[in-house]
Nucleic acid binder design. Structure first.
Lengths: 216, 216
DNA sequence: CGCGGTAATGAACATGGTGTTGATTTTTGT
DNA sequence: ACAAAAATCAACACCATGTTCATTACCGCG
Protein backbone atom coordinates (compact mmCIF):
# COMPACT_ATOMS: atom_id res chain seq x y z
CA UNK A 1 0.00 0.00 0.00
CA UNK A 2 1.33 3.37 -0.94
CA UNK A 3 0.02 6.50 0.66
CA UNK A 4 -0.56 9.50 -1.53
CA UNK A 5 -0.48 12.98 -0.06
CA UNK A 6 -2.50 14.78 -2.65
CA UNK A 7 -5.06 15.70 -0.07
CA UNK A 8 -2.53 16.60 2.57
CA UNK A 9 -0.60 18.78 0.17
CA UNK A 10 -3.79 20.49 -0.88
CA UNK A 11 -4.75 21.62 2.61
CA UNK A 12 -1.84 23.99 2.85
CA UNK A 13 -3.73 26.81 4.50
CA UNK A 14 -3.87 27.19 8.26
CA UNK A 15 -6.48 25.19 10.12
CA UNK A 16 -8.67 24.72 7.09
CA UNK A 17 -11.60 22.92 8.58
CA UNK A 18 -13.86 20.88 6.35
CA UNK A 19 -16.52 23.42 5.37
CA UNK A 20 -15.22 26.86 6.28
CA UNK A 21 -16.59 30.10 5.01
CA UNK A 22 -14.94 31.17 1.78
CA UNK A 23 -13.89 34.46 3.37
CA UNK A 24 -12.11 32.67 6.19
CA UNK A 25 -10.21 30.50 3.77
CA UNK A 26 -9.18 33.55 1.77
CA UNK A 27 -8.07 35.43 4.87
CA UNK A 28 -6.06 32.57 6.28
CA UNK A 29 -4.47 31.90 2.95
CA UNK A 30 -3.49 35.55 2.59
CA UNK A 31 -2.03 35.54 6.08
CA UNK A 32 -0.07 32.40 5.33
CA UNK A 33 1.40 33.91 2.19
CA UNK A 34 2.18 37.18 3.91
CA UNK A 35 3.86 35.40 6.80
CA UNK A 36 6.07 33.41 4.46
CA UNK A 37 6.97 36.46 2.39
CA UNK A 38 7.87 38.57 5.41
CA UNK A 39 9.84 35.78 7.06
CA UNK A 40 11.90 35.50 3.88
CA UNK A 41 12.36 39.23 3.51
CA UNK A 42 12.90 40.43 7.05
CA UNK A 43 12.93 37.43 9.35
CA UNK A 44 10.26 36.40 11.82
CA UNK A 45 11.17 38.85 14.54
CA UNK A 46 11.58 41.85 12.29
CA UNK A 47 7.97 42.50 11.32
CA UNK A 48 4.80 43.26 13.21
CA UNK A 49 1.19 42.18 13.01
CA UNK A 50 0.62 45.52 11.31
CA UNK A 51 3.09 44.65 8.56
CA UNK A 52 1.56 41.22 8.23
CA UNK A 53 -1.93 42.57 7.71
CA UNK A 54 -0.74 45.29 5.36
CA UNK A 55 0.99 42.65 3.25
CA UNK A 56 -2.03 40.39 3.35
CA UNK A 57 -4.25 43.35 2.52
CA UNK A 58 -6.42 42.62 5.52
CA UNK A 59 -7.69 44.59 8.43
CA UNK A 60 -5.81 44.01 11.62
CA UNK A 61 -9.01 42.98 13.36
CA UNK A 62 -9.39 40.14 10.90
CA UNK A 63 -6.07 38.73 12.01
CA UNK A 64 -7.15 38.73 15.64
CA UNK A 65 -10.39 37.04 14.63
CA UNK A 66 -8.43 33.94 13.71
CA UNK A 67 -5.19 33.99 15.65
CA UNK A 68 -4.14 35.06 19.09
CA UNK A 69 -0.87 36.56 17.89
CA UNK A 70 1.92 36.17 15.35
CA UNK A 71 3.20 33.03 17.03
CA UNK A 72 -0.21 31.39 16.98
CA UNK A 73 -0.31 31.72 13.20
CA UNK A 74 3.19 30.33 12.83
CA UNK A 75 2.58 27.38 15.12
CA UNK A 76 -0.67 26.51 13.39
CA UNK A 77 1.16 26.23 10.09
CA UNK A 78 3.96 24.22 11.64
CA UNK A 79 1.58 21.82 13.30
CA UNK A 80 -0.12 21.12 10.02
CA UNK A 81 3.10 20.05 8.35
CA UNK A 82 4.15 17.93 11.29
CA UNK A 83 0.74 16.28 11.37
CA UNK A 84 1.02 15.48 7.67
CA UNK A 85 4.44 13.96 8.23
CA UNK A 86 3.13 11.71 10.96
CA UNK A 87 1.45 9.79 8.19
CA UNK A 88 4.88 8.86 6.80
CA UNK A 89 6.06 7.37 10.03
CA UNK A 90 4.10 4.21 9.58
CA UNK A 91 5.73 3.67 6.21
CA UNK A 92 9.08 4.24 7.84
CA UNK A 93 8.47 1.77 10.58
CA UNK A 94 7.77 -0.93 8.05
CA UNK A 95 11.26 -0.52 6.69
CA UNK A 96 14.19 -2.69 7.78
CA UNK A 97 17.88 -2.56 7.15
CA UNK A 98 17.73 -5.83 5.25
CA UNK A 99 15.29 -4.29 2.83
CA UNK A 100 17.53 -1.31 2.33
CA UNK A 101 20.51 -3.43 1.48
CA UNK A 102 18.46 -5.25 -1.11
CA UNK A 103 17.85 -2.08 -3.10
CA UNK A 104 21.33 -0.74 -2.58
CA UNK A 105 21.99 -0.76 -6.29
CA UNK A 106 20.97 2.88 -6.20
CA UNK A 107 19.01 2.55 -9.38
CA UNK A 108 15.55 2.06 -7.96
CA UNK A 109 14.55 4.76 -5.52
CA UNK A 110 12.39 3.71 -2.61
CA UNK A 111 8.82 4.74 -3.40
CA UNK A 112 8.06 6.14 0.02
CA UNK A 113 11.19 8.31 -0.12
CA UNK A 114 10.03 9.73 -3.43
CA UNK A 115 6.68 10.50 -1.86
CA UNK A 116 8.39 12.17 1.06
CA UNK A 117 10.41 14.49 -1.15
CA UNK A 118 7.30 15.17 -3.22
CA UNK A 119 5.49 16.27 -0.11
CA UNK A 120 8.39 18.45 1.01
CA UNK A 121 8.41 20.07 -2.43
CA UNK A 122 4.69 20.77 -2.18
CA UNK A 123 5.34 22.61 1.09
CA UNK A 124 8.57 24.16 -0.09
CA UNK A 125 7.55 27.80 0.26
CA UNK A 126 6.69 27.39 3.92
CA UNK A 127 9.56 25.04 4.70
CA UNK A 128 12.10 27.31 3.04
CA UNK A 129 10.89 30.23 5.10
CA UNK A 130 10.58 28.45 8.43
CA UNK A 131 13.91 26.65 8.17
CA UNK A 132 15.83 29.56 6.71
CA UNK A 133 17.65 32.33 8.59
CA UNK A 134 14.41 34.22 9.19
CA UNK A 135 12.58 31.14 10.40
CA UNK A 136 11.75 29.37 13.65
CA UNK A 137 14.49 27.52 15.48
CA UNK A 138 12.00 25.07 16.99
CA UNK A 139 10.76 23.66 13.72
CA UNK A 140 13.80 21.81 12.34
CA UNK A 141 14.09 19.52 15.38
CA UNK A 142 10.42 18.67 15.04
CA UNK A 143 10.90 17.82 11.39
CA UNK A 144 13.97 15.79 12.24
CA UNK A 145 12.18 13.80 14.92
CA UNK A 146 9.12 13.30 12.76
CA UNK A 147 11.02 11.94 9.79
CA UNK A 148 14.61 11.03 10.42
CA UNK A 149 14.77 9.55 13.89
CA UNK A 150 12.39 6.73 13.14
CA UNK A 151 14.24 5.99 9.96
CA UNK A 152 17.59 5.79 11.67
CA UNK A 153 16.42 3.65 14.54
CA UNK A 154 15.07 1.15 12.06
CA UNK A 155 18.41 0.98 10.35
CA UNK A 156 20.24 0.39 13.62
CA UNK A 157 21.93 -2.91 14.03
CA UNK A 158 19.51 -5.12 15.91
CA UNK A 159 21.94 -5.73 18.69
CA UNK A 160 21.96 -2.09 19.72
CA UNK A 161 18.34 -1.21 19.39
CA UNK A 162 17.31 -2.03 22.91
CA UNK A 163 20.42 -1.32 24.95
CA UNK A 164 21.48 2.18 24.02
CA UNK A 165 25.07 2.99 24.91
CA UNK A 166 26.27 6.59 24.77
CA UNK A 167 27.76 5.84 21.38
CA UNK A 168 24.47 4.56 19.96
CA UNK A 169 22.86 7.72 21.26
CA UNK A 170 25.24 9.86 19.23
CA UNK A 171 25.02 7.45 16.34
CA UNK A 172 21.30 8.14 16.02
CA UNK A 173 21.78 11.88 16.44
CA UNK A 174 24.49 11.74 13.81
CA UNK A 175 22.38 10.21 11.07
CA UNK A 176 19.16 11.98 11.95
CA UNK A 177 20.88 15.36 11.77
CA UNK A 178 22.66 14.30 8.61
CA UNK A 179 19.41 13.66 6.78
CA UNK A 180 17.84 16.79 8.11
CA UNK A 181 20.84 18.60 6.69
CA UNK A 182 20.34 16.99 3.29
CA UNK A 183 16.70 18.03 3.22
CA UNK A 184 17.59 21.54 4.32
CA UNK A 185 20.29 21.78 1.69
CA UNK A 186 17.91 20.60 -1.00
CA UNK A 187 15.38 23.26 -0.05
CA UNK A 188 18.07 25.94 0.21
CA UNK A 189 19.37 25.16 -3.26
CA UNK A 190 15.94 25.50 -4.78
CA UNK A 191 15.21 21.78 -5.14
CA UNK A 192 17.19 21.41 -8.33
CA UNK A 193 17.17 17.62 -8.04
CA UNK A 194 14.00 15.65 -8.64
CA UNK A 195 12.39 13.67 -5.85
CA UNK A 196 13.61 10.47 -7.48
CA UNK A 197 17.18 11.73 -7.63
CA UNK A 198 17.00 12.73 -3.98
CA UNK A 199 15.68 9.34 -2.99
CA UNK A 200 18.65 7.73 -4.71
CA UNK A 201 21.11 10.16 -3.16
CA UNK A 202 19.64 9.59 0.28
CA UNK A 203 20.16 5.87 -0.05
CA UNK A 204 23.70 6.15 -1.37
CA UNK A 205 24.61 8.41 1.54
CA UNK A 206 23.59 5.71 3.95
CA UNK A 207 25.79 3.09 2.40
CA UNK A 208 28.99 4.96 1.76
CA UNK A 209 32.03 5.49 3.93
CA UNK A 210 34.27 8.55 3.83
CA UNK A 211 37.34 8.02 1.69
CA UNK A 212 35.77 5.31 -0.37
CA UNK A 213 35.27 5.88 -4.01
CA UNK A 214 31.91 7.52 -4.40
CA UNK A 215 30.91 5.44 -7.39
CA UNK A 216 28.63 2.73 -6.20
CA UNK B 1 52.08 23.09 17.55
CA UNK B 2 48.97 22.81 19.63
CA UNK B 3 46.79 25.80 20.22
CA UNK B 4 45.37 26.35 23.65
CA UNK B 5 42.21 28.34 24.11
CA UNK B 6 42.59 29.33 27.71
CA UNK B 7 42.60 32.97 26.76
CA UNK B 8 39.77 32.64 24.30
CA UNK B 9 37.64 30.79 26.82
CA UNK B 10 38.37 33.45 29.38
CA UNK B 11 37.07 36.38 27.32
CA UNK B 12 33.52 35.18 27.48
CA UNK B 13 31.94 38.59 27.97
CA UNK B 14 30.71 40.64 25.05
CA UNK B 15 33.23 42.81 23.23
CA UNK B 16 35.67 42.82 26.11
CA UNK B 17 38.33 45.10 24.76
CA UNK B 18 41.80 44.95 26.18
CA UNK B 19 41.62 47.50 29.01
CA UNK B 20 37.97 48.33 29.59
CA UNK B 21 36.60 50.07 32.60
CA UNK B 22 35.71 47.64 35.34
CA UNK B 23 32.13 48.93 35.36
CA UNK B 24 31.73 48.19 31.66
CA UNK B 25 33.01 44.68 32.11
CA UNK B 26 30.61 44.12 34.98
CA UNK B 27 27.66 45.52 33.04
CA UNK B 28 28.34 43.51 29.91
CA UNK B 29 28.88 40.36 31.93
CA UNK B 30 25.59 40.89 33.74
CA UNK B 31 23.80 41.45 30.44
CA UNK B 32 25.34 38.32 28.98
CA UNK B 33 24.20 36.24 31.93
CA UNK B 34 20.74 37.78 31.89
CA UNK B 35 20.40 37.17 28.18
CA UNK B 36 21.34 33.52 28.53
CA UNK B 37 19.02 33.02 31.48
CA UNK B 38 16.04 34.63 29.77
CA UNK B 39 16.64 32.80 26.52
CA UNK B 40 16.57 29.54 28.44
CA UNK B 41 13.51 30.48 30.46
CA UNK B 42 11.30 32.25 27.95
CA UNK B 43 13.00 32.17 24.57
CA UNK B 44 14.65 35.04 22.77
CA UNK B 45 11.47 36.64 21.46
CA UNK B 46 9.51 36.43 24.66
CA UNK B 47 11.33 39.00 26.79
CA UNK B 48 12.03 42.70 26.47
CA UNK B 49 14.97 44.98 27.09
CA UNK B 50 13.16 45.91 30.27
CA UNK B 51 13.18 42.31 31.45
CA UNK B 52 16.80 41.96 30.47
CA UNK B 53 17.85 44.97 32.53
CA UNK B 54 15.71 43.96 35.47
CA UNK B 55 17.35 40.53 35.47
CA UNK B 56 20.80 42.04 35.08
CA UNK B 57 19.99 44.54 37.83
CA UNK B 58 20.97 47.40 35.59
CA UNK B 59 19.35 50.60 34.48
CA UNK B 60 17.88 50.48 31.02
CA UNK B 61 20.02 53.40 29.96
CA UNK B 62 23.12 51.37 30.72
CA UNK B 63 22.03 48.77 28.21
CA UNK B 64 21.66 51.38 25.50
CA UNK B 65 25.08 52.75 26.37
CA UNK B 66 26.62 49.54 25.10
CA UNK B 67 24.19 48.00 22.63
CA UNK B 68 21.83 49.29 20.00
CA UNK B 69 19.14 46.74 20.86
CA UNK B 70 18.56 43.18 21.99
CA UNK B 71 19.81 41.76 18.74
CA UNK B 72 23.04 43.74 18.89
CA UNK B 73 23.86 42.10 22.20
CA UNK B 74 23.07 38.64 20.88
CA UNK B 75 25.09 39.07 17.70
CA UNK B 76 28.06 40.43 19.60
CA UNK B 77 28.16 37.29 21.70
CA UNK B 78 27.70 35.06 18.66
CA UNK B 79 30.47 36.80 16.76
CA UNK B 80 32.87 36.25 19.61
CA UNK B 81 32.35 32.51 19.59
CA UNK B 82 32.60 32.30 15.82
CA UNK B 83 35.78 34.36 15.89
CA UNK B 84 37.26 32.02 18.49
CA UNK B 85 36.36 29.04 16.35
CA UNK B 86 38.11 30.54 13.35
CA UNK B 87 41.31 29.74 15.17
CA UNK B 88 40.49 26.03 14.91
CA UNK B 89 40.11 26.12 11.18
CA UNK B 90 43.82 26.19 10.58
CA UNK B 91 44.27 23.06 12.65
CA UNK B 92 41.48 21.48 10.65
CA UNK B 93 43.00 22.32 7.35
CA UNK B 94 46.20 20.59 8.32
CA UNK B 95 44.30 17.35 8.69
CA UNK B 96 44.06 14.77 5.92
CA UNK B 97 42.08 11.61 5.52
CA UNK B 98 45.23 9.54 5.52
CA UNK B 99 46.06 10.87 8.95
CA UNK B 100 42.61 10.03 10.20
CA UNK B 101 42.83 6.45 9.05
CA UNK B 102 46.13 6.11 10.87
CA UNK B 103 44.55 6.86 14.25
CA UNK B 104 41.40 4.89 13.53
CA UNK B 105 42.10 2.55 16.43
CA UNK B 106 39.77 4.76 18.43
CA UNK B 107 42.01 4.65 21.43
CA UNK B 108 43.91 7.86 20.93
CA UNK B 109 41.66 10.88 20.47
CA UNK B 110 42.92 13.57 18.13
CA UNK B 111 44.32 16.37 20.29
CA UNK B 112 42.71 19.16 18.34
CA UNK B 113 39.32 17.50 18.64
CA UNK B 114 39.75 17.34 22.40
CA UNK B 115 40.60 21.02 22.40
CA UNK B 116 37.54 21.77 20.33
CA UNK B 117 35.20 20.01 22.74
CA UNK B 118 36.98 21.68 25.64
CA UNK B 119 36.27 25.04 24.10
CA UNK B 120 32.64 24.18 23.44
CA UNK B 121 32.30 23.12 27.06
CA UNK B 122 33.77 26.41 28.23
CA UNK B 123 31.08 28.22 26.24
CA UNK B 124 28.37 25.73 27.08
CA UNK B 125 26.00 28.11 28.84
CA UNK B 126 25.81 30.41 25.86
CA UNK B 127 25.82 27.64 23.28
CA UNK B 128 23.07 25.74 25.08
CA UNK B 129 20.90 28.83 25.12
CA UNK B 130 21.57 30.01 21.59
CA UNK B 131 21.16 26.58 20.01
CA UNK B 132 18.20 25.52 22.13
CA UNK B 133 14.52 26.11 21.42
CA UNK B 134 14.70 29.67 22.73
CA UNK B 135 17.80 30.46 20.72
CA UNK B 136 18.76 32.01 17.38
CA UNK B 137 18.18 30.02 14.23
CA UNK B 138 21.06 31.75 12.46
CA UNK B 139 23.75 30.57 14.82
CA UNK B 140 23.86 26.81 14.21
CA UNK B 141 24.65 27.16 10.50
CA UNK B 142 27.46 29.53 11.36
CA UNK B 143 28.85 27.05 13.85
CA UNK B 144 28.51 24.28 11.31
CA UNK B 145 30.31 26.21 8.62
CA UNK B 146 33.02 27.36 10.98
CA UNK B 147 33.83 23.89 12.26
CA UNK B 148 32.34 21.05 10.30
CA UNK B 149 32.48 22.05 6.67
CA UNK B 150 36.23 22.45 6.55
CA UNK B 151 36.64 19.17 8.33
CA UNK B 152 34.45 17.31 5.90
CA UNK B 153 35.98 18.79 2.81
CA UNK B 154 39.38 17.66 3.99
CA UNK B 155 38.10 14.15 4.43
CA UNK B 156 36.63 14.08 0.93
CA UNK B 157 38.16 11.67 -1.48
CA UNK B 158 40.72 13.64 -3.47
CA UNK B 159 39.05 12.83 -6.73
CA UNK B 160 35.90 14.74 -5.80
CA UNK B 161 37.35 17.74 -4.12
CA UNK B 162 37.62 19.95 -7.16
CA UNK B 163 34.75 18.77 -9.35
CA UNK B 164 31.67 18.88 -7.16
CA UNK B 165 28.78 16.82 -8.49
CA UNK B 166 25.34 17.22 -6.92
CA UNK B 167 26.02 14.11 -4.91
CA UNK B 168 29.25 15.50 -3.46
CA UNK B 169 27.33 18.61 -2.56
CA UNK B 170 24.89 16.59 -0.47
CA UNK B 171 27.67 14.41 0.80
CA UNK B 172 29.32 17.42 2.40
CA UNK B 173 26.02 18.71 3.75
CA UNK B 174 25.32 15.26 5.14
CA UNK B 175 28.46 14.96 7.24
CA UNK B 176 28.62 18.61 8.24
CA UNK B 177 25.08 18.49 9.59
CA UNK B 178 25.78 15.15 11.19
CA UNK B 179 28.61 16.53 13.29
CA UNK B 180 26.68 19.64 14.14
CA UNK B 181 23.97 17.30 15.39
CA UNK B 182 26.44 15.41 17.55
CA UNK B 183 27.69 18.61 19.11
CA UNK B 184 24.15 19.83 19.68
CA UNK B 185 23.16 16.53 21.24
CA UNK B 186 26.16 16.61 23.54
CA UNK B 187 25.25 20.09 24.75
CA UNK B 188 21.57 19.18 25.12
CA UNK B 189 22.40 16.14 27.23
CA UNK B 190 24.49 18.20 29.62
CA UNK B 191 27.89 17.17 28.28
CA UNK B 192 27.96 13.91 30.20
CA UNK B 193 30.86 12.59 28.12
CA UNK B 194 34.34 14.00 28.52
CA UNK B 195 36.00 15.86 25.69
CA UNK B 196 38.29 12.87 25.14
CA UNK B 197 35.33 10.50 24.90
CA UNK B 198 33.64 12.80 22.42
CA UNK B 199 36.77 13.00 20.29
CA UNK B 200 36.82 9.21 20.12
CA UNK B 201 33.12 9.00 19.34
CA UNK B 202 33.45 11.60 16.61
CA UNK B 203 36.14 9.58 14.93
CA UNK B 204 34.31 6.29 15.20
CA UNK B 205 31.23 7.88 13.63
CA UNK B 206 33.24 8.81 10.60
CA UNK B 207 34.51 5.29 10.02
CA UNK B 208 31.42 3.23 10.59
CA UNK B 209 28.72 2.10 8.22
CA UNK B 210 25.10 1.49 9.18
CA UNK B 211 24.40 -2.16 9.84
CA UNK B 212 27.96 -2.99 10.71
CA UNK B 213 28.75 -4.14 14.17
CA UNK B 214 29.45 -1.06 16.19
CA UNK B 215 32.45 -2.55 17.98
CA UNK B 216 35.55 -1.22 16.36
C1' DC C 1 -33.70 36.01 -5.51
C1' DG C 2 -33.53 37.52 -0.78
C1' DC C 3 -32.76 36.89 3.95
C1' DG C 4 -30.25 35.75 8.23
C1' DG C 5 -25.85 34.98 9.78
C1' DT C 6 -21.20 35.86 9.82
C1' DA C 7 -16.90 37.68 8.46
C1' DA C 8 -14.33 41.96 7.35
C1' DT C 9 -13.72 46.80 8.14
C1' DG C 10 -12.50 51.08 10.45
C1' DA C 11 -12.05 53.71 14.44
C1' DA C 12 -11.01 54.29 19.05
C1' DC C 13 -8.80 53.02 23.36
C1' DA C 14 -5.53 51.77 27.33
C1' DT C 15 -1.30 49.53 27.88
C1' DG C 16 3.41 48.76 27.59
C1' DG C 17 7.92 48.55 25.23
C1' DT C 18 11.27 51.42 22.51
C1' DG C 19 15.02 54.32 21.87
C1' DT C 20 16.57 58.94 23.11
C1' DT C 21 17.83 62.96 25.95
C1' DG C 22 19.51 65.60 29.86
C1' DA C 23 20.62 66.25 34.61
C1' DT C 24 22.57 63.95 38.55
C1' DT C 25 25.13 60.63 41.26
C1' DT C 26 28.52 57.04 41.76
C1' DT C 27 32.60 54.71 40.56
C1' DT C 28 36.96 54.27 38.27
C1' DG C 29 41.87 54.96 36.88
C1' DT C 30 45.91 57.45 37.94
C1' DA D 1 42.02 63.77 45.68
C1' DC D 2 40.55 64.89 41.08
C1' DA D 3 39.00 64.60 36.50
C1' DA D 4 36.88 61.39 33.45
C1' DA D 5 33.60 58.26 32.56
C1' DA D 6 29.96 55.14 33.58
C1' DA D 7 25.55 54.23 35.88
C1' DT D 8 21.17 56.10 37.38
C1' DC D 9 16.73 58.34 37.14
C1' DA D 10 12.98 60.76 35.01
C1' DA D 11 10.74 62.26 31.12
C1' DC D 12 9.67 62.16 26.29
C1' DA D 13 7.39 60.97 21.64
C1' DC D 14 6.53 57.06 19.03
C1' DC D 15 4.71 52.76 17.81
C1' DA D 16 2.80 47.96 18.24
C1' DT D 17 -0.42 45.41 20.89
C1' DG D 18 -4.74 43.38 21.84
C1' DT D 19 -9.51 44.62 22.65
C1' DT D 20 -14.12 46.64 21.76
C1' DC D 21 -17.96 48.24 19.02
C1' DA D 22 -20.66 49.93 15.33
C1' DT D 23 -20.95 49.48 10.45
C1' DT D 24 -20.46 47.38 6.02
C1' DA D 25 -19.81 43.55 2.78
C1' DC D 26 -20.14 38.98 1.75
C1' DC D 27 -21.56 34.08 2.10
C1' DG D 28 -24.52 29.99 2.43
C1' DC D 29 -28.97 28.34 2.00
C1' DG D 30 -33.78 28.07 1.52
Amino acid sequence: MTITFETAAACASPATGAGEDRRIVRSKRALRDALIALMEERGYEAFTVNDLCARADLNRGTFYNHFRDKEDLLLTLEDEVIADLERFRESLQRLSLAELLRVRTGRTPLPFLVELFDYLRAQADFLHAVMGPGGDIRFAPRLRDAVCTDLIENILHDRYRENPTPFVNYYVAFYASAYLGVITRWLEMGMAESSEEMAVIALRLLLIKPGESIEL
